[in-house]
Nucleic acid binder design. Structure first.
Lengths: 146, 146
DNA sequence: CTAAGATGTAACTTAATTAATTACACTATA
DNA sequence: TATAGTGTAATTAATTAAGTTACATCTTAG
């Protein structure tokens, strides 16, 4: 299974850009929150720009969300970073001369698709706004008890 | 993201065992349908046995399902082969001194959990019996038109 | 009772994927 | 025009899973 943190990192970047929109947001600064390299951040921001989720201008450290946070869902970010690849992997090839091998890929593919759509519907219910608000509430709770 | 075909291969093995229960089922024979090596098949069968889905006896080429096919769901196979690992990866570590880095893992973890459960509910709705019947219907259709 | 054919499993190799790193051309602006 | 930044390609390193080799163990036909 493909283990990639691109999806999570990208949400992190978007939330960071929105919450800290009043300070200077170089890839260096963002990378210190995500704890990865600035190049990785810039690469991901390239993907997010390509997908129409942020606007950036070369040379200036001022990325902006291209939409209202309430209009960006986790599914938008997922599709931007992971594409619409299957959630569960099928074999590249199974024996077509066998009743099982010749049919199972289609059969499982359909069931997998149903499960993927169910997961994606959930991701589509959550907006960047929700993520940001929940982060801020959790932080308030921390600040309160310490 | 971790790309693994263990899940699909295991369903394949289980369906094969049930459909061909009257012939001799060596790991060699099964591997010719899945198109992988016999060792890989034996390794997966070890996992399926461990999970209580099949019974095997060393030396004999006669694996059997341990339950009725209608009582084995795709989720059972998924949990046996992939465990209950997250569907979407979180970072190992983000900056705890940052409001975003210090809270986002928990927040995303919860949303990811919702999506995972939605997908798993779908997998839990499909039984090995369903898979086998659909395979056989598809095959009948192929035989008919040729 | 033993040879042939199987399983079970460990150890190692290969392949594929992703994050990290290095390097550098290009852009903005003080 | 120097400084600080982005954009992106190319390479390296780390991780993971599949494939391979090897062999101990078990079953059973003869």
């Amino acid at each position: 299974m493909h283990v990639s943190t691109r999806f999570s990192d990208s949400i992190h970047i978007l939330a960071f850009i929105e919450i800290y929109k009043d300070i200077k947001l170089s890839s260096e600064v963002i990378s210190s929150s995500v704890e990865t390299s600035a190049v990785v951040i810039r690469r991901l921001m390239g993907i997010l720009r390509e997908a129409g989720l942020i606007d950036t201008k070369q040379g200036t450290a001022e990325p902006k969300l291209a939409k209202n946070p309430a209009d960006i869902t986790l599914l938008d970010v997922y599709l931007a970073t992971e594409g619409n690849r299957p959630l569960f992997e099928l074999d590249k090839k199974t024996n077509p001369d066998c009743i099982v091998g010749g049919n199972i890929q289609d059969v499982l593919g359909n069931y997998y698709e149903d499960a993927k759509i169910a997961a994606q519907r959930k991701l589509n219910e959550v907006t960047l706004q929700d993520v940001i608000e929940t982060i801020l509430v959790k932080q308030k709770y921390k600040d309160n008890i310490t």
